[in-house]
Amino acid sequence: MSRIEVLKTYKIFIGGKFPRTESGRFYPLKHNNKIIANMCLSSVKDFRNAVVAARSAQGGWATKTAYNRSQILYRIAEVLEGRKAQFIEELETQGIAKSKATQEVELSIDRLIYYAGWCDKYIQMHSTVNPVSGSYFNFSVPEPMGVVAVFAPEDSGLLGLVTQICSIIAGGNTCVVLASEHLPLCAISFSEVLATSDVPNGVVNILTGKIAELSAVFASHMNVNALLYCGSDSNLIKSIQVLAIDNIKRVIVRDNSDYMDEKYENLHYIYDFQETKTTWHPIEQIGGAGSGY
């Protein structure tokens, strides 16, 4: 008797759980006119719930030691390595050649390692002691902005997504990500990797759906601190920039070119979502006996 294959239901990822969209809607994902999966068509409310999860996770994630954050990112890479075959197969299902798919998965793992390495170093690289006139010790350090909403690159379902997510969370931010509309499978499988890699619930939340439906709420939500768009639709860029004004969200636009390129291993991707905090400290209370700054 032939066996009936058990197919996976691709759900969304909010606060460490895998709910279906509250709207109950879906869209068929096709390749070569064949339906390969039904994806959740996430609603505004799903986004709202994801922001609540991301906000409540943010404080705890940012106050973990940098070293621990680094370990967790490394752990994601380890778990992804163990599930390489599944991701390669998934990319192939979506129409990517096997050799290209293999390269994409391997590079995704390496990119995680790259950003894992920066977790406990980027602060030192960007901190300064500032010369001031007066008996103060004055220093500036980067701090995470908070919750970042991300429109993941449309044409790089895994590598592009991983690159953006890991550079954001390496810096102590949490994020809500809208996966690529026509390459969403790996995004949901990647959230299974995140869920089993000691990443605290809510640090990364992944939705699937249509950017046209969700861009306005991504850009206008007052509890989102920054916005990342990977693409080149100039009308969309303009509209999200306008909507982001209310709470002066930082809007970062990155072009959507070849994610295999080494330029995506970029320390400045971390700084894009950092604020600089400058502190004035009376010298008398910081120096050891007899020392001066």
Binding site: V51, H221, M222, N223, N247
Partner: peptide, 8 residues
Amino acid sequence: GIYQSGDY
């Protein structure tokens, strides 16, 4: 029509 933040 805009989702709010506790910050405000």
